[in-house]
Design a protein around this nucleic acid. Structure first.
Length: 788
DNA sequence: AGGCTCACGTCTA
DNA sequence: CGTGAGCCT
C-alpha cells in the first residue's frame, strides 16, 4: 500500500512526537486504519455473522485519546471505488470467501484457534461497518466525512483547505497527494505519532542516513509525485525492475517522467508496457485532481482544479465521476452506501451509541463521563449489546450550546467515583476557561497553488556540500523543467474566483465559531491530568455535514429524515451538469468498439480498453509531454448502447439481471426490438441507478473485498473487457491496489513476457480475451493456484 | 560483488 | 517490516 520503500527512505525526516504537541489542532484521520485494526478484535463475530460493534469501540477509543490530548479529530472514510483501482475485487473476494469457508470448516471441527486465523483473513471493512462508527461519531459530535472516492484524496483536500492541520494515516500516499504534515504510526500506548513534513523533504539527500540513496533536494511536488508513480503506486504498477531508487535517480538525470520512460525503453533492458505514459498521466491526475467533497460548498470538487488543456473525458472518468450535489452530500454524511448509492443500511440498529465517554485510561478502572447537550433522545435505549448505557438524559435541544455534563453509569465500570465527578467538572471548567483557543492551522499560504519553486534549506546546502557531484545537478534540476513543474498547478482564471470564495467561506466559518464553546465536554481527565496545567481546548466544530440550523439527531433519526436537509440550495456543478438524480455520468467502454463508452451510475471504467490500442508502438510517445491522446467519447448512453453494454459487460451476469441480457444473445436482434430496448434500459437503470434489484450490495465492503455477516456478496460491477484477442491491455487492467499484496496478483498480459520477468502468465491474456466474468474467475483460479 | 527489486515470512492490532 | 532470493550491472 502506498509507495513501497518511501517511508524507510524518509527515515531521516521522521520525528516521533507526543500527541500533546498537537493540542489545539484539528487533525484528519484515515478511518480505514482504525476500522481495519478494530476488525481484528472481533473477526470471528464478523465472519460468522454475530452482531458486534467492538470495532467501533476500538476506533472511538482512539478518537477519545486524541481529544484527551486536545486534538480535534476529523474522521475521513473511504467512499466508492475509484475506476482507477477497480478490477481487483473479484479476486479478493474469492480469497476471502475461501478463508471464510475454511474458517467455518475448522470451526465446525472444533479447531477454533485455526478457524480464527482464517476469519482474520476474510474480514474486511464494509461501508455498513463504517456507518456504525459514524453513529458513534455523531453521538459524540466528532467531525467526519465520507469521501466520494478515496479517503486519501479527501484527507489531502481537507489539509489543503486549512480545515485540518495534519493527516493521521498509515499510507505514504498522502505525501504524494501533496500533504504537508503527515502523521504515521500512531501509538496509543506511548501516545505518539511519527511526523513527516513536506517541508523537510529538502533535507533528504542521497547521503543522508537511511535515505536509501534517495534525494529529494530541490524537488517540486510534481517531481516527487513523478518519482512515486514511476516507482509504482496504487494506480499504476511500475515498469518491472523500476523501484524507488531507480525512479529517483533517473528522474534526476532525465528530469521528466516522459524522458525517463523514453530512456528506459531506449536502454532496452526493461520492457515498457504500451501506453505506460498515458497511464502515468492518468495516475498523475488521480493524485492531482481526484474528486473530493467540499463541505463548504456541499458538492464534489476536484482536489485541485484541472488544466482544461489536458483534460478529457477519460481523465474525467478516471478521477471519479461527479455526483449530483444532493447525492454527494448524503454520501459525505454517511447516509448512502458509497458503492451502491443506496440509502445506508444499518446492519446493527441495536447499536445506539450514547454520548458517554469512557476514559482512555483503562488501568484506573474505567472512568465514565457523559456528553450531554444535544438533542434529547426520546426513546430509552435498550436492546443491542451495546447498551451498556443507561437511559439517556434529556437535554435541552440546543445542539451547539454547552451544557452541564450529566453522569451516567457505565457498563464496564458500573459506578462512578467522586473523582470522576470532579474530573468532569474540571474538564468542563477548563473548557470554559479556554473557549476560543483556535486550532492552529499552519495552513499553506498559497492555498491550492503551491509554488513549485525550490526551497533551499540549510540542510539542502549541507547536502550540496556533502555530495558535490549531486548538488550541481540538483540545482540544475530545480531551475529547469518549468513545464513539468507547473503542470496542473496553474489556476484557471475561471475557477480562481470560486476558490477564493471557498476560502472565504472557510474563513468566515472559523470566525463564527470563535467564542463558541464545544457542546460536549469530551475530555475526561484522569489523575495524571489533574496535576498538569490546563490545556486550551480546541474549539469544536460540529460536523460540517450537519446543517447548522436543522441538525437532525443522527442516532434516532433515519437517514430519510436527514435527507431533507440537503436540498436547500441549488447546486452548481462546475464540470458536470446535473444528471438525473440516480444516474451519474460515467464513461464505460464497450468492448467491441473501444471508442464507445457507456454510462452507468458510478464510474465503471476499464481503461485498458481506452489505452494502448495502438499495437504498433511499444511506448506511446504521443504528443509532447503535456498532451495526451484523447480518445473520442460519445456522450450519454442510448438504450442501444445499454443493450450493447449489457451483452458484453460482465456485470450483467448477475443473476438478478442475467435473464435480461442472456436471454437473447443476438445483439442485432436486440437492437431491432425497440420495446425490448426499453425494457433493458429500464432494467439497467433500475439496477444501476436505483439498485433495487441489487439487494446484496448493501453489504459490499469497501476497499477491496467484501465480507458480509452471511458470507454472501454480490460481485461488484467489473470493468468491461475488450472482446478482441491479442489486443494490448494496459497495466491498468491488472489488479493494482492499495494493498501491496495485490501486486502479487498482478498480471501483465504478456507485455513483458520475454523478459525473464515473465511471471505474468500469458495464459491470462488469453483468458482475458473472453468475457470478463469468465476471465475473472479463471484469473482468480490461476492466481489461487499459484499461491498455494 | 554489489545494487536493486521483488517475494516471503513474521508480527500485531 | 525485515530478510533473502534472484536478476542486473
Amino acid at each position: 500500500m502506498g509507495i513501497q520503500g518511501l517511508l524507510p527512505a524518509l527515515k531521516s525526516i521522521q520525528n516521533t512526537r507526543h500527541l500533546s504537541e498537537f493540542s489545539g489542532q484539528t487533525i484528519a484521520v484515515d478511518a480505514y486504519v482504525w476500522l481495519h485494526k478494530g476488525v481484528f478484535t472481533c473477526a470471528t463475530e464478523l465472519a460468522t455473522g454475530i452482531s458486534t460493534h467492538k470495532y467501533v469501540n476500538y476506533a472511538m477509543e482512539k478518537v477519545r485519546l486524541l481529544r484527551h490530548h486536545g486534538i480535534e479529530p476529523y474522521i475521513v472514510f473511504d467512499g466508492g471505488p475509484l475506476p482507477a483501482k477497480k478490477g481487483t475485487e473479484v479476486e479478493r473476494k474469492r480469497k476471502r470467501d475461501e478463508h471464510l469457508a475454511r474458517g467455518n470448516l475448522l470451526a465446525s471441527q472444533g479447531k477454533h484457534a485455526q478457524a480464527r486465523d482464517c476469519y482474520l483473513k476474510c474480514v474486511d471493512v464494509t461501508p455498513q461497518m463504517a456507518f456504525q462508527l459514524i453513529k458513534a461519531l455523531r453521538a459524540e459530535s466528532v467531525q467526519y466525512i465520507v469521501a466520494p472516492y478515496e479517503a486519501d484524496a479527501q484527507l489531502a483536500f481537507l489539509e489543503r483547505q486549512g480545515i485540518v492541520s495534519a493527516i493521521l494515516t498509515e499510507d505514504s500516499d498522502l505525501l504524494v497527494f501533496g500533504c504537508k504534515n503527515v502523521l504515521l504510526k500512531f501509538d496509543p500506548v506511548a501516545r505518539t505519532v511519527v511526523s513527516i513534513s513536506r517541508a523537510d523533504f529538502a533535507s533528504v539527500t542521497a547521503t543522508s542516513l537511511d535515505s536509501n540513496g534517495i534525494s529529494l533536494v530541490g524537488w517540486s511536488d510534481n517531481q516527487f509525485r513523478a518519482m512515486a508513480i514511476l516507482s509504482g503506486c496504487d494506480y499504476l504498477p511500475s515498469i518491472p525492475g523500476i523501484g524507488l531508487k531507480t525512479a529517483c535517480a533517473m528522474l534526476r538525470r532525465w528530469k521528466t517522467p516522459q524522458a525517463v520512460v523514453r530512456q528506459i525503453a531506449l536502454e532496452g533492458k526493461k520492457r515498457v508496457p504500451k501506453g505506460y505514459l498515458d497511464q502515468f498521466r492518468l495516475a498523475e491526475k488521480c493524485f492531482l485532481h481526484q474528486r473530493v467533497y467540499d463541505p463548504s460548498v456541499e458538492k464534489l470538487v476536484y482536489l485541485s482544479d484541472v488544466d482544461l488543456q489536458s483534460w478529457d473525458d477519460l481523465a474525467e472518468a478516471y478521477i471519479g465521476s461527479d455526483l449530483e450535489a444532493t447525492l454527494a452530500k448524503k454520501l459525505a454524511a454517511g447516509d448512502l452506501d458509497p458503492i451502491t448509492l443506496e440509502p445506508m443500511i444499518d446492519i446493527n440498529p441495536g447499536f445506539r451509541p450514547s454520548r458517554m465517554i469512557r476514559d482512555i485510561n483503562k488501568g484506573t478502572g474505567a472512568t465514565w463521563s457523559i456528553k450531554s447537550k444535544d438533542k434529547e433522545k426520546s426513546k430509552p435505549k435498550n436492546g443491542g449489546i451495546l447498551n451498556f448505557f443507561g437511559p439517556n438524559p434529556t437535554i435541552p435541544p440546543r445542539l451547539k450550546s454547552p451544557s452541564k455534563p450529566i453522569m451516567t453509569v457505565g457498563k464496564a465500570s458500573g459506578k462512578r467515583t467522586l473523582a470522576e465527578v470532579m474530573d468532569q467538572d474540571v474538564a468542563a471548567k477548563k473548557k470554559k476557561r479556554f473557549p476560543s483557543s483556535a486550532p492552529t492551522s499552519p495552513v499553506t499560504s498559497s492555498k491550492f497553488f503551491i509554488q513549485s519553486g525550490v526551497r533551499r534549506t540549510s540542510s539542502a546546502t549541507v547536502q550540496a556540500r556533502a555530495s558535490g557531484s549531486y548538488s550541481r545537478a540538483e540545482k540544475e534540476n530545480i531551475a529547469s523543467e518549468p513545464a513539468f513543474d507547473g503542470d496542473s498547478l496553474i489556476a484557471q482564471p475561471g475557477v480562481d474566483s470560486e476558490i477564493e470564495e471557498d476560502f472565504q467561506f472557510e474563513a468566515s466559518a472559523v470566525e463564527q465559531e470563535d467564542g463558541y464553546i464545544s457542546p460536549t465536554p469530551s475530555i475526561s481527565k484522569d489523575e495524571e491530568d489533574f496535576s498538569s496545567p490546563p490545556k486550551p481546548h480546541p474549539k469544536r466544530r460540529v460536523s460540517p455535514l450537519a446543517d447548522k440550523d436543522d441538525f437532525v439527531d443522527p442516532i434516532s433519526s433515519p437517514p430519510a429524515a436527514q435527507s431533507s436537509v440537503s436540498l436547500r440550495r441549488p447546486q452548481r456543478l462546475v464540470h458536470y451538469s446535473p444528471s438525473p438524480v440516480h444516474i451519474d455520468p460515467v464513461k464505460v467502454l464497450v468492448e467491441a468498439s473501444p471508442d464507445k463508452r457507456l454510462e452507468v451510475k458510478r464510474g465503471i471504467v476499464d481503461l485498458k480498453d481506452c489505452l494502448g490500442n495502438d499495437p504498433s508502438s511499444e511506448i506511446d510517445y504521443s504528443g509532447s509531454d503535456e498532451d495526451s491522446a484523447t480518445p473520442p467519447y460519445p456522450s450519454p448512453l442510448t438504450p442501444d448502447e445499454l443493450i450493447h453494454q449489457t451483452q458484453n459487460h460482465s456485470l450483467i451476469t448477475d443473476s438478478n439481471f442475467g435473464e435480461l441480457e442472456l436471454e437473447d444473445p443476438e445483439e442485432k436482434e436486440l437492437k431491432a426490438s425497440a420495446s425490448r430496448t426499453q425494457v433493458v434500459a429500464a432494467k439497467w437503470q433500475e439496477r444501476w441507478a436505483h439498485g433495487s434489484s441489487y439487494p446484496n450490495t448493501a453489504f459490499l465492503k469497501r476497499r477491496e473485498t467484501n465480507i458480509t455477516p452471511t458470507g454472501r456478496h454480490r460481485l461488484q460491477p467489473h470493468s468491461q473487457r475488450a472482446a478482441h484477442g491479442n489486443v494490448y491491455r494496459s497495466t491498468l487492467d491488472s489488479p493494482v491496489d492499495a494493498n501491496r499484496n495485490r501486486k502479487k496478483l498482478t498480471f501483465f498480459d504478456g507485455n513483458w513476457d520475454d523478459n525473464g520477468k515473465g511471471k505474468f502468465d500469458t495464459k491470462m491474456l488469453d483468458l482475458d480475451t473472453e468475457n470478463t466474468e469468465i476471465s475473472a474467475q479463471a484469473r482468480t483460479r490461476l492466481k489461487v493456484e499459484r499461491f498455494r
